[in-house]
Write a protein that binds this DNA or RNA. Structure first.
Ligand SMILES: [Mn+2]
Ligand SMILES: [Mn+2]
Ligand SMILES: [Zn+2]
Ligand SMILES: [Zn+2]
Lengths: 148, 148
DNA sequence: ACGTTAATTGTAATATTGTTGCGTTTACAT
DNA sequence: ATGTAAACGCAACAATATTACAATTAACGT
């Protein structure tokens, strides 16, 4: 998100979901909103190395359950987390956008604006949610590739 | 695959890729071809508990590299493996089909016949491959749901 | 302000998944 | 039959995730 988000936004967000405003939670929200790509669990852990690992896992699963963030696995099966932009409710996510995983920088981009085309499944399959994944080069890495 | 595949098919397959025909490899191929869903790493490990874990990992990554199988992460980030049906080459996969993950039985189905619609990405993103994921109820589980 | 309490965090222990190094075995080409 | 590279088994380790429980603290009513 290029937009600067302020702490009281996060505090409101936590309030709304009946979650206590704690330092670790605010820091996680702040870190994730300061990036334009999803944040991997290893990243989160190394940046917030003063916060206990278990606490981080609990914060992440609480946020995910409340519909504040959503989880995406990248090419290597690593968990990445990004703020939900759509109005995701407790237990019901609506993050049916494209996830672009750059093979160079490994970043995962949420392309929220890209709406999925209609899919019709074989008989018997009852879909609940779709996600489209793409791999390739992100704008930064494709630019670099041209220069060389 | 409902079709019964015979051992000599697997032996030919291994030959083609310059892989030695060993008992563990043949058993992995046999197990995977006997199922109509992808096989999870935990499943593989518990069924083949007499084969060393490391050997299984090495077989899986060799097969994946050769384009014999492809890897899919399910909802929980667990690795699942399925035989490639498209002509996948060494290092180049073409498994751009839909992966359906049943929320009930947790099985991952490769819906090979379902071709992906065209997607146009924002400027700068250079795609290499796409995968479409869906979650929901598979035919078996949706049938059970109706009965209750 | 202050005390109460449920929610949250920290700590330790454990489980699961995946990797690396190395010695032994074996498939297969000659 | 024999030599050899490939594959396997074993041990040790690394990374990721979960559980149980004790200590702390944010939020609430007074
Ligand atoms: Mn996303
Ligand atoms: Mn598949
Ligand atoms: Zn990139
Ligand atoms: Zn099912």
């Amino acid at each position: 998100m290029a937009q600067t988000l302020h702490n009281f936004h996060f505090e409101d967000l936590l309030n709304k979901h009946h979650l206590k405003k704690t330092a670790p939670r605010l820091r996680v929200l702040s870190m994730m909103s300061s990036r334009n790509t999803a944040t991997s669990q290893p990243d989160l852990e190394s940046v917030m190395n003063d916060i206990d690992r278990v606490t981080l896992y609990r914060i992440l699963s609480a946020f995910e359950e409340k519909g504040i963030i959503h989880k995406v696995f990248d090419l290597n099966g690593t968990a990445n987390y990004a703020l939900c932009t759509s109005n995701c409710d407790e237990g019901h996510h609506h993050d049916e956008h494209l996830h672009f995983n750059c093979t160079q920088c490994k970043n995962v981009y949420c392309l929220n604006d890209l709406q999925l085309p209609a899919i019709n499944l074989p008989v018997g399959f009852v879909p609940q949610a779709f996600t489209l994944y793409a791999t390739g080069l992100c704008p930064k890495c494709s630019k670099k590739a041209v220069k060389q």
